[in-house]
Design a protein around this nucleic acid. Structure first.
Lengths: 131, 131
DNA sequence: CGGAATCCCCCACGATACTG
DNA sequence: CAGTATCGTGGGGGATTCCG
């Protein structure tokens, strides 16, 4: 994805700061746009959390998706995974500083959504009503 | 999606502001998480833009996806569609005030991505290298 | 407890037409 | 010019089973 927008900046005409911003936004949006990443990130921001705790607190998630999403977040450096070699095994996940900063950066978006939630709902009703 | 997190707030225990924020974030992220929405929104933020102009400036997009994404953005009240009943037809799209505010709200995310891009790349290399 | 492996489904998206 | 219609595909995600 984003082949066009990114490739264009190679050595072509003026790098166009606008296009660059688009790529940057898509980068971060794609990173958290999965169905579960944001919820997991939030739980892990509260403090160290175990696999099974996440399975319970992130309601609706399957073991498979929990594992996959945790791996991706860990890979991006947003979660730190700690294994305690006890028996039974104990694994804890915690948000990194980067992830906490990300969560703060999202507050602007939350503000926007709250300010315009009603307007969006009205726009949809209007659009769906008249076509 | 988000069945769990939203449904839980019906009349259950304390509404948990954290979970509510998760839903709000996912709301807005999902709204712009398509492959083309952000790029289209940017072009339409510069000023009124025609269908064919978008087809050229948003590189790689197909007519079909352009139409679908435009419809969704219009439905959410992020784009305004103006039809000039001339021949040949002329249709212009422009970002609404809401959309412009959204773009400003995204700047925090851009800042985050720029600050941590290198750290993320390193985290990935490290993760992929060692497994 | 904390996963990995397998199977299946759905839908966002791409390609390729046709049209007022 | 600005769309619609139709068909096909890939991968994100669900359900289930097995494992150290």
């Amino acid at each position: 994805m984003s082949q066009g927008n990114i490739a264009v900046t190679d050595q072509a005409e003026t790098p166009d700061p606008g296009k660059l911003a688009v790529c940057t936004v898509m980068e971060v949006v794609n990173r958290i746009s999965g169905k579960w990443a944001i919820g997991i990130l939030l739980e892990a921001t509260r403090g160290p959390v175990r696999f099974t705790e996440l399975e319970r607190s992130v309601s609706g998630i399957s073991r498979r998706m929990l594992t996959l999403t945790l791996r991706n977040l860990e890979r991006d450096g947003l979660l730190e995974r700690t294994v305690y070699p006890t028996v039974p095994p104990r694994v804890e996940y915690e948000a990194t500083g980067m992830a906490r900063e990300l969560y703060e950066s999202l507050s602007a978006l939350v503000g926007w959504a709250e300010r315009h939630r009603e307007a969006i709902a009205l726009a949809r009703d209007s659009y769906d009503g008249r076509g």
